[in-house]
């Protein structure tokens, strides 16, 4: 009786006319240990279908959140601001804000102060210049080396 039913279902199954419930019935039947010998070939088929439906996707999918997009645009904006700032700054330096006389005055002042500095520096070097005497003294002391020669001769013998 059961087998008869299964055979009918199988025929429908082969023609693609079974409903999901009927297919489930077939699956249950063929998951048994023993099936009718002439239906044996359906067994691996249904076993394969049930086995295949248990395979799982285990890989992690990297989901990027939106914030990374903001960071991207933030960096672009930062670079823009930097470049703008640079050009803006350099254009300020180029503009003629000072008049000719002011520039000359500044030049004179700088010149004066540099002059003063060099004067003071020269004074300093004058005072230090007598240190040169030490050098001449040093050369005079050099002849003391001459002592070494006779000494060596003496020790050799």
């Amino acid at each position: 009786m059961v087998l008869n039913n299964i055979e009918k279902l199988l025929e429908k199954y082969d023609n693609g006319e079974t409903t999901l419930q009927e297919e489930q019935q077939l699956k249950n039947y063929f998951s048994q240990e023993t099936v009718a010998p002439h239906l044996e070939m359906y067994k691996p088929m249904f076993a394969y279908f049930s086995k295949s439906s248990k395979e799982q996707f285990t890989k992690q999918v990297p989901l990027k959140t939106k914030s990374s997009l903001y960071y991207k645009w933030l960096s672009v904006a930062a670079v823009g601001v930097l470049i703008f700032g640079f050009f803006y700054n350099s254009s300020i330096n180029n503009t003629d804000e000072y008049t000719q006389t002011e520039k000359e005055l500044a030049y004179q002042q700088v010149k004066e102060s540099l002059h003063f500095v060099s004067k003071q520096l020269n004074k300093g070097t004058e005072k230090v210049s007598y240190l040169g005497i030490i050098n001449t003294a040093g050369t005079q002391v050099d002849y003391l080396k001459e002592f070494n020669h006779p000494l060596r001769r003496i020790f050799k013998n």
């Binding site: 199954y13 082969d14 023609n15 693609g16 070939m41 359906y42 691996p44 088929m45």
Partner: peptide, 11 residues
């Protein structure tokens, strides 16, 4: 239906 029959026959 074709696919099922093919699988059955080949099996």
């Amino acid at each position: 239906s074709r696919a099922r029959k093919t699988i059955k026959e080949q099996l």
